[in-house]
Simulated assay, not measured.
Amino acid sequence: MHEEWMVQVDDTDQPLARVLRSQFAFGRDIHRTTFIFVLDSQHRLCVQTRSPHKGYCPGLRDLAAGGVVDWQESYLDSAKRELAEELGIEAPLVLMGKFRHKSAGNYSFATVYGCRHDGPISPQDDEVTGYEWLALDKVLASPGPAFTPDSLDAFGRFKGFLPYL
């Protein structure tokens, strides 16, 4: 099995160490992550349901594609990789901003991107078990499993920018 390397950063997002993902202290040490909000031409957001086998927030809904930035990978390259891995999408990405997030099991610097996509979606089974398109003004009121705390934080910070993608 391939072991993933990631970067531990300080509270200003400067690299501190190269760490095996399996040995990283999630929730205590700070890492880098990306979020990619995917909207269609009808201004609907693609909301995914995470696989029950994921280590972080299994079975919850995710408001964005994304994930942990690998060692020596840029935020942008990570976002492109995660979008392709999770949803099978290649699309031009628009940088929306950056923030720091802290919740149980997650302490990270996150860079947020957005894209428009009306083509097919091919979710990766071990990442995503399903997806739905939700109107931006109805996302938070939609029935179903809870949202991941980090994607909910990102959505709260950047939802005002989403219609302008």
Rank of each mutant, 00 (worst) to 15 (best):
M1G: 15
H2C: 10
H2T: 15
E3C: 04
E4P: 00
M6V: 12
V7S: 15
V7R: 13
Q8A: 13
Q8S: 11
V9H: 08
D10K: 06
P15L: 03
L16E: 11
R18L: 00
L20A: 15
Q23A: 12
F24P: 06
F26T: 05
I30K: 10
T33L: 05
T33W: 03
F35Q: 14
F35E: 15
F37N: 04
S41H: 15
Q42G: 10
R44M: 00
R44P: 09
L45H: 05
C46M: 13
C46A: 14
V47N: 10
Q48I: 11
Q48W: 00
R50A: 13
R50K: 12
S51T: 12
S51V: 02
S51N: 07
S51L: 02
S51E: 07
H53E: 15
H53M: 11
G55M: 04
G55K: 06
Y56A: 05
P58G: 04
G59T: 06
G59Q: 06
G67A: 05
V68I: 14
V69H: 06
D70C: 04
E73G: 02
S78A: 15
K80F: 00
R81G: 07
R81I: 08
A84H: 12
A84P: 00
A84K: 12
E85G: 02
E86Q: 14
L87I: 08
E90N: 11
M96K: 06
G97Q: 03
H101G: 08
H101D: 06
K102Y: 00
S103T: 13
S103Y: 01
S103F: 00
A104M: 08
G105K: 05
G105A: 02
N106L: 12
Y107G: 08
Y107M: 13
S108Y: 02
T111F: 01
Y113F: 12
R116D: 00
H117Y: 03
P120Y: 01
P120W: 00
P120K: 13
I121K: 11
S122Y: 10
S122N: 14
D125L: 03
D125S: 12
D126F: 01
V128S: 09
T129S: 14
T129H: 04
G130N: 09
Y131F: 15
W133R: 09
A135K: 14
V139K: 10
A141M: 11
P143E: 14
G144I: 05
A146R: 13
T148W: 04
S151L: 01
L152I: 04
F155H: 05
F155S: 04
G156A: 10
G156H: 14
K159M: 07
G160F: 08
Y164R: 08
Y164S: 11
Y164H: 14
L165M: 12
L165E: 07
L165T: 08
